[in-house]
Amino acid sequence: MSGNVLLEYVMPVSRVEVISSPNLQYLHNALVIVKPKTGGGIAQTVVRITSEAELAAITDATMPAKLLKNLSYFYALPVSSLDLTAAGITNIDEYKYWTILIDPAFTDTELEGYKKPSNFNGVTGYASSDEELVIEANKVDKNSYFYSLEDNAGSNMYEAFGALLYARKGIWTNQQYMAMDLSDNIAETSTANAMFDSRVNFVLSDPEQYGNRLALFCVGNGSGASAIVAPYVYEEITTVLQGNALTWINLNEPDYTITQAKLLEDYLQKTIDAYIDNGQISGGTITVTTGNEQFILQGSIVIPEPSAIWRVKATLQEGVI
């Protein structure tokens, strides 16, 4: 409905809409790949899960519900094969997520057929009782596999990812030594050392006092392992910088000048500084300059990788010299 004709005549007002900040919720969303419910049809449709009952309606797997300890919902996709590019999966592109968790009901052999959705570049989680498989998998960029007893059905993986994705107060944390529900029967220091050295995500159990504790949670980076928060923090900063660049260009309609490049650089540096101030990165700089190409500035961003402390190796010298 248009406004009053007289008012519109006296004072026509054009409204300028400010572009909103990018939505970061996708970073906190998980897509769980589960096997379809026994006796049920294979829907191959992503479903939003908010309760155990909703999960039970599509699969026999119960452990994904552990995500709901921290998250208000997650997405689940019941499929019989891990080829997520298959044409039969109807709505996988309608949802935004940056973590895929593969339920351990899929065997290690079935895992070999895993194909990510074509536009997915986030983190993949899986749990297996095959330590060698986990060791090799965690060398791959953005893989975060857990060692898990078969009977536990990936319980600890779901719990750990749920706590990670919740990101209390908007800060990504590494979840060091969080309490876990189930034991994966790792209770020897020598076994734990071997797991740690191989960068296997695992839960260490101390039946006497501390119970079951998450003892390593990392992610492959192609050449080794990184803190689990690293890919999430990088992705978030990248998205926020992109959003802020869009907003700034839209608001200021800049010319192609050194001054404008410098002003944009200052604006984006403030974004990085905010992440330094809240402790998620230890430093970071951005430079934006003019180049030889019409319309496009040249940018360079340097941010040290977010890291985590899990252990301390110390020496105690007895006696006084």
Partner: peptide
């Protein structure tokens, strides 16, 4: 406010955030 003084030839600047 973020205050600036920028040389529009060299890009050298004073920036106060």
């Amino acid at each position: 406010m973020d205050v600036f003084c920028i040389d529009n030839v060299t890009g050298e600047s004073i920036s106060a955030k």
